[in-house]
Design a protein around this nucleic acid. Structure first.
Length: 473
RNA sequence: GGCACCAUAGCCAAGUGGUAAGGCAGAGGUCUGCAAAACCUUUAUCCUCCAGUUCAAAUCUGGAUGGUGCCUCCA
């Protein structure tokens, strides 16, 4: 499999540290709100990476953290008159509701920053002892000048950063270099704090991820994921802290997803132009959201709009119709005792070839830097052939079933559920029987009236050569 | 100012040297009591523009134009 590695800015053959195992760390949410569609992109993208690696029989150790202490959280908790911990608990619960519904697998480990204070302090201690960190007025800082390769991920050098920063206000005069960042922030009035050798306080944002990654995955990991906006300073700083601490490479492959835009502008909590998952599912299902995200390459920007969501919904229905239709035909054949013509023929051959091709192309696309859009196209090709085959009596049920299975399994690798649980109420079944009778009596006005009633239950009935087919709206 | 990225049909989108996938929308048709679904046909002589390299470029090189992001919390 090839992965685009931000560190070298090109695609690279993926070779894990330990054969058959993959260690992945991905930066999780700061839990002070419901998460929005922009936050959902990395969760979904890298969950798909994980599922694909597992599909390829790798053992994946996946860590996604919760940032449960920072300025925004403190401010909001104070405003609401609750503790930071209470607010974090609440939005972690809410996170899981959305994440579970989006079919994002639970991480192998999902640590909270405030539960790893000991590990964070250990790391800071090493950095101070090694001379990479120093104590200033308001906290302990990492000295970027001490870390020679600072800037290797983002392609910034310290002089350029100085030039950029010159237009901005220099907030803290006690720092040696403007780019120095806080490892530990000393306590201010009204803030939660923990004891440390340098004074009570709380961890800086960057050190959390370094410490949690190291705690659960070791000094060097295979893949570190996140949004492109985290490249600098967050990931750059993680590299500096981790490599300064251990003297070993921190991450072999850096993967970064593109943004979701609104009217070609970045969507973000701070700009206020965001849609939460909770907002969107008022109108579109979780599967549609996931389908929408995966229908572009993960590194490309996506422009979000309701029209695109609507298009994704219809496209997903096309897949579901194919599978449901196959199921209907197969069940119907069993009921009616349909005798299958098992003589080999061209239609069977075509479908068999389409199944094999879909699988091969799906894997080839996913192997090419997780090209989910191309992988989905391969499955749409199979859907077309399967739809044709399903109209022919000379294609055995077993092969129709095989087509359905491969579609379900491979969409499952993308984390998209094709089969929807649905129980048809007995009232609906009775109405369908009534409608068949009405139709037999050529009483079409009554038949249409009954169809409307069925619609009131949230179901549709369509007439097929094999009889009425009921499906949920 | 520095560093990155992007530009493909009405819309979305794949394609990194061999002559434009796929989805949505549209048009016509088949099937149907009517629908729905499905199928068939159709929808970019061409990939923002201009040069260049090559037998061959949407794909490589240089330039232009337009757009976005990062350099500050941010997925």
């Amino acid at each position: 499999m090839k992965i685009y590695n931000t560190l070298i800015r090109e695609k690279q053959e993926f070779v894990p540290l330990v054969e058959g195992e993959v260690r992945i760390y991905t930066c999780g949410p700061t839990v002070y709100n419901y998460f929005h569609i922009g936050n959902a992109r990395p969760f979904i993208t890298f969950d798909t990476l994980r599922r694909y690696l597992e599909y390829k029989n790798y053992k994946v150790i996946y860590v996604q953290n919760f940032t449960d202490i920072d300025d925004k959280m403190i401010n909001q908790a104070n405003a609401e008159g609750i503790t930071v911990r209470e607010m974090a608990d609440r939005y972690i619960r809410e996170y899981y509701i959305d994440a579970d519904n989006l079919n994002i697998k639970r991480s192998t480990f999902q640590p909270r920053a405030t539960d790893c204070i000991v590990d964070i302090l250990d790391m800071i201690n090493v950095l101070v002892n090694k001379g990479y960190a120093y104590v200033a007025e308001d906290g302990v800082y990492f000295s970027v000048e001490k870390f020679e390769t600072y800037g290797k991920l983002s392609n910034f050098n310290l002089d350029e950063l100085e030039a950029g920063a010159s237009e901005r206000v220099c907030i803290n005069e006690s720092k040696i270099n403007r780019a120095d960042f806080a490892l530990w922030k000393f306590k201010k009035e009204g803030e939660p704090s923990w004891e440390s050798p340098w004074g009570d306080g709380r961890p800086g944002w960057h050190i959390e991820c370094s410490a949690m990654s190291r705690k659960y995955l070791g000094d060097t990991i295979d893949i570190h994921c996140g949004g492109q906006d985290l490249i600098f300073p967050h990931h750059e700083n993680e590299i500096a802290q981790s490599e300064a601490t251990t003297g070993k490479p921190f991450v072999n492959y850096w993967m970064h997803n593109g943004f979701i835009n609104i009217n070609n502008q970045k969507m973000s909590k701070s700009s206020g132009n965001f849609f939460t998952i909770r907002d969107i599912v008022q109108k579109y299902s979780y599967e549609v959201i996931r389908f929408f995200i995966l229908s572009s390459h993960y590194r490309s920007p996506i422009n979000f709009s309701e029209d695109l969501l609507a298009a994704s919904q219809v496209a997903l229905e096309r897949i579901r119709n194919c599978v449901n239709n196959n199921t209907f035909i197969i069940d119907n054949r069993k009921k009616t005792g349909f005798e299958e013509n098992i003589i080999a023929n061209l239609d069977i051959q075509e479908l068999k070839e389409a199944i094999a091709k879909a699988k091969t192309e799906f894997i080839a696309s996913m192997d090419d830097d997780l090209n989910t859009a191309d992988a989905m196209a391969a499955l749409f090709d199979l859907v077309r052939v399967a739809n044709i085959a399903s109209t022919k009596d000379n294609v055995p049920s077993s092969i129709l079933n095989e087509a359905s299975t491969i579609i379900i399994v491979l969409f499952g690798v993308l984390g998209i559920k094709i089969i929807q649980e649905e129980t048809i109420p007995s009232e609906v079944i009775a109405l369908v029987v009534d409608r068949v009778n009405a139709k037999n009596e050529k009483n079409f006005a009554l038949a249409d009236e009954i169809r409307k009633k069925i619609g009131d239950f949230g179901f549709t009935v369509s007439d097929t050569p094999a009889g009425p087919k009921i499906s949920k709206i």
